[in-house]
């Protein structure tokens, strides 16, 4: 059975993240769009929902938790994965309770994130 192409959204105000994740995740044939701030990301999400959203937890203006909440409100079965960094593990745990699928801490290899996305996509199909 051929796996459907995933629509993945990556949100992180650090340029390095989107820049490196996009090609890495597109390798498996999925569609990836990257954003460097929550507003534009959510606006895009309003146009059409994504299967997977990968978002940094701590960003200015709109932070990862808010993105999580708004994404899930719009599309309950979207899988949201949080990227944590320095001192944000506690918030990540909170995110899990708010419905985030999992979290991954920087520094990480794109392959590790791919593994989480793979698991998430299994649940999407289930």
């Amino acid at each position: 059975m051929e796996a459907k192409k995933l629509k993945i959204m990556v949100i992180d105000d650090e340029n390095i993240v989107g820049k490196r994740l996009k090609p890495a995740l597109e390798k498996s044939g999925d569609i990836v769009e990257t954003f460097e701030n929550g507003e534009s990301a959510l606006a895009r999400f309003d146009e059409e929902p994504f299967d997977i959203v990968v978002t940094d937890i701590r960003m200015e203006k709109i932070d990862g938790i808010e993105i999580l909440e708004r994404v899930l409100a719009k599309s309950a079965h979207t899988k949201v994965i949080m990227i944590t960094g320095y001192a944000t593990v506690e918030i990540a745990r909170e995110a899990l309770s708010k419905g985030a699928f999992d979290f991954i801490a920087k520094p990480f290899k794109p392959a590790d994130l791919r593994a989480i996305i793979k698991r998430a996509s299994k649940e999407l199909r289930a």
Binding site: A24, Y86, K106, P110
Partner: peptide
């Protein structure tokens, strides 16, 4: 390892 493995990292990793 981080640089060779093309890890996604933040400035904090380097400063620490």
């Amino acid at each position: 390892e981080k640089i060779l493995g093309e890890y996604i990292l933040d400035r904090h990793y380097v400063t620490s």
